[in-house]
Design a protein around this nucleic acid. Structure first.
Lengths: 122, 122
DNA sequence: GCTGTACTTTACCAATCAGCTAATAAACCG
DNA sequence: CGGTTTATTAGCTGATTGGTAAAGTACAGC
């Protein structure tokens, strides 16, 4: 995975990983504590792998405390992801106005606004 | 890919796909128009594949206009992604206070707050 | 009906991912 | 030392991803 932003989004593209982050919102936790809700559905090495993905995305920091690896949430990479999304805020609001936009298009049907291939003739 | 949110994040975890979305912020575009900046780096079927990922994530809607497939941005799935991130807003702000938090911990070193394995003794 | 344009589908490849079991490492404790 | 707990690494599998080239589909216009 190339850039940081891609790594961040890729790390979030898994429900287990998001659940781990949610768990860490409640504070530090060791690997077995994190794994506990998933065991039965998944083995410990599986959780370790997920943690490694989160760690290399910079979303989780793993400490060392004797034989434990206390994991902490680091939400900083989410800032960039959030900032990226912010660019689309306007479009999120607009998405339900789709019908209204459509009606406008139909009403002003004499313009070239309906032809999608306007750059075709270059 | 299981749930909608995972599909959304997975779709965003690729710079080419994000660039396509950025392009569509400027309005509708056909497949070849979208592909144009990437050709040389990537072939047309490659772009088609990326579009299919975006489409099945619900981020892009492909229309039919003769032989053209005018693609439009649909930012609605970003709402859920954005809402998910919102839960971590507080942690984003806190991430630079890490040092301060550490100092607090050291100062109040007599408490059990530093032991990460508090659930170990169950 | 032929030719060109726009786009998709198919078939293949290499690489990565998500999961497992089994083995290993590292630390504590009696 | 020997055993237990905690966690990682190694090696394997099957599924998915990202890319390609080449063939196929659909439409427009001469």
């Amino acid at each position: 995975m190339q850039d940081q932003l891609s790594r961040t989004f890729a790390a979030l593209a898994d429900p287990t990983r998001r659940a781990i982050l949610a768990r860490l919102r409640g504070g530090e936790a060791t690997v077995t504590q994190i794994a506990e809700p998933f065991l039965g559905r998944m083995t410990l090495p599986g959780v370790t792998k997920h943690l490694k993905v989160l760690e290399s995305a910079g979303l989780v920091t793993k400490g060392r405390e004797a034989q434990w690896r206390p994991c902490t949430l680091n939400a900083e990479p989410l800032k960039d992801a959030s900032a990226w999304m912010e660019e689309y805020r306007v479009h999120m609001e607009a998405s339900l106005d789709r019908l209204g936009e459509y009606l406008k298009t139909v009403t002003a049907a004499t313009t070239t606004t309906t032809t999608p291939h306007t750059g075709n003739d270059r």
